[in-house]
């Protein structure tokens, strides 16, 4: 099968474009409106700041669903952190107590025991 050459495609596309006509008319002040939208987008980009974001967040917090989700998430985070920290500390203390027992019955271990 003979592959189509790019130059031939180009020509057919040009023919199509020559016969294509747009019948509908653009709305009044279309160009002006496009420019206004571009300007608004640029202004909005410039005014983005952390304080605006915080304000937006605080405004969103007044919604009951988001407030409930926020408090629940912090509650779970606090519980997990407390549990994890307690677990880490008790493991460390267990090692320290084991070391203390060994040192009590075997004084030679005072130099060798690892400090908790």
């Amino acid at each position: 099968m003979k592959p189509e050459r790019p130059s031939e495609n180009h020509e057919s596309f040009r023919r199509l474009m020559r016969v294509w006509r747009v019948d509908s008319s653009i709305p009044p002040r279309f160009q002006e409106q496009v420019w206004q939208r571009i300007e608004r987008a640029e202004v909005a980009k410039e005014v983005f700041s952390w304080s605006a974001m915080v304000n937006e967040f605080l405004r969103a917090l007044t919604r009951p669903a988001l407030a409930t989700a926020y408090v629940s998430a912090l509650l779970v985070a606090g519980l997990l952190a407390g549990h994890w920290h307690a677990r880490a500390d008790t493991t460390k203390w267990d090692k320290a107590l084991a070391s203390r027992y060994v040192q009590a019955v075997d004084p030679y271990q005072q130099a060798l025991a690892i400090d908790p």
Partner: peptide
């Protein structure tokens, strides 16, 4: 969150 952390 602080209360939950301290409690656990």
């Amino acid at each position: 969150a602080c209360a939950a952390y301290c409690l656990l």
